[in-house]
Amino acid sequence: MRNLKIIIIILIPTLGFSQKNKTYNTWAEAKQTPELVYKLNLSNDSSINEIPREINILHNLEKLAVEKKGITSIPSTIGECLRLKELYLMENRISTLPKTIGNLKSLETLHLRSNNLSSLPNSIGNLSNLRGLYLSENQLTYLPEEIGNLRFLEGIRLDENQLTTIPVQIGELKNMHTFVALKNNLVSLPESFYRLSELKYLDLSDNELANIDGIQQLIKLDILNLDNNKITTLPNGIFNLVRLEKLNLSNNDLSSVKLEFTNWVKLEELHLENNNIQTIPESIGHLLELSRLYLQGNPIEQLPDTLTNLKKLNWLNLSDTQVNQFDIDKLKSQLPGLGVTTRGK
């Protein structure tokens, strides 16, 4: 009898764990035992074309996915799912969010990629536990100031919207390590942006940025992408971003820029293509971890001798430059593992 009691004690938590990991895939099944539903995926439920208003009967719901269903709205009753931690609504036609979304204080992940959102409710700032916010491929023209209340936010994706500015309150997001806003219409960044001291991944490519003064303050950056902007000068301090592993400055208007590569000792990939750079400095020889270098589309006539120091360099693009074949062959003889492309010359 004593052994039987031990078995019961072990089984009860095991059953509970199993139930929490079960994913319900139809609304009909979920509403039969609402108190047992922790995870619900209605993406393949052909019987519904909107999120049911009765979603609030699922008091224990922690994860909800309704993807690629063409849904146009979210019922206000979603705000009563107070235990919800993950919400996935990608690739729908949602144009507005209910104000009640701000009631989801337990929410940690909100995926709304590829919808029709043109604005966010101010209540978005009430999502006090949000870690990841994914808003790519919408029609957002601005972000509410309340975005600055999301103090635990670690990553945000805003690519392919219509943003022209970022609110100054963005500087309050001290835990942010990933910020992606490529393919917008950003012309400047607020000074407060450069207070995001934990930022490691920053992609602002395909915007209208001309001035990036302050970026040197983001000393934890590993990856920086500024491709296809209107940058003509680099702040001196950018060369003190000693953690950089990948840097993309291609398709700007860098010309008489003093390039000083001494401190980028961890850099593995460097894109400088399609600028107006005429000279590569000898200091490039300090980039001992560099494996890929893109210089195509610049009026470069000569390569520095220190390139031979880069023993890990395995790819060099010199298309549409003025570097002669003799110098290229000489470099390849000294770096046997190097692949060079001169297509377009």
Rank of each mutant, 00 (worst) to 15 (best):
M1K: 13
N3H: 14
I6T: 13
I6S: 14
I6D: 13
I7D: 04
I7F: 08
L11S: 10
I12M: 10
G16C: 11
Y24N: 07
N25Y: 11
W27L: 10
A28N: 14
E29D: 15
P34I: 07
N44P: 05
N44E: 12
S46G: 12
N49G: 02
N49A: 09
E54M: 03
I57Q: 13
K63N: 11
L64I: 09
L64N: 03
A65D: 11
V66Q: 01
K68V: 07
K69W: 02
K69E: 00
G70L: 11
S73T: 08
I78M: 12
E80N: 15
K85L: 08
L89R: 02
M90A: 06
I94T: 08
K99Q: 08
T100R: 04
I101Y: 02
N103K: 11
N103A: 09
S106D: 14
T109Y: 00
L110R: 02
H111E: 10
N116L: 10
S118K: 12
S118W: 08
P121S: 10
N122S: 14
I124C: 07
S128N: 12
N129W: 09
L133V: 07
L133E: 05
E137T: 09
Q139F: 14
Q139S: 15
Y142S: 15
I147L: 06
I147Y: 03
F152A: 05
G155Y: 08
G155W: 07
N161Y: 03
Q162Y: 00
L163F: 07
P167W: 04
V168D: 13
E172D: 02
N175Q: 15
N175R: 15
A181I: 04
L182D: 01
N184G: 06
S188Q: 12
S188L: 08
F193Y: 00
Y194L: 08
L196K: 01
S197K: 14
E198V: 05
E198Q: 14
L199N: 07
K200A: 10
L202I: 14
D206Q: 03
A210I: 05
N211M: 08
I212F: 07
G214C: 11
Q216M: 04
Q217M: 02
K220R: 10
K220C: 02
L221F: 12
L226T: 01
N228R: 12
N229F: 00
T232Q: 14
N236C: 06
G237S: 05
I238S: 04
I238E: 02
N240S: 15
L241F: 09
V242Q: 06
N251T: 07
N252G: 06
L254K: 09
S256I: 01
W264D: 00
V265D: 04
K266S: 12
L270D: 04
L270I: 04
N274I: 04
N275R: 10
P281R: 01
P281G: 11
I284S: 00
G285Q: 06
L288G: 05
R292V: 08
L295H: 02
G297T: 03
G297C: 09
G297Q: 01
P299Y: 08
Q302H: 14
P304I: 03
T306C: 05
T306H: 06
L307W: 03
L310I: 09
K312H: 13
L313E: 15
L313S: 00
W315K: 03
W315F: 15
L316E: 06
N317H: 11
N317Q: 13
Q322W: 02
Q325T: 15
I328K: 01
I328S: 01
K330T: 14
K332G: 10
L335R: 10
G337S: 15
G339R: 12
T341D: 14
T342F: 02
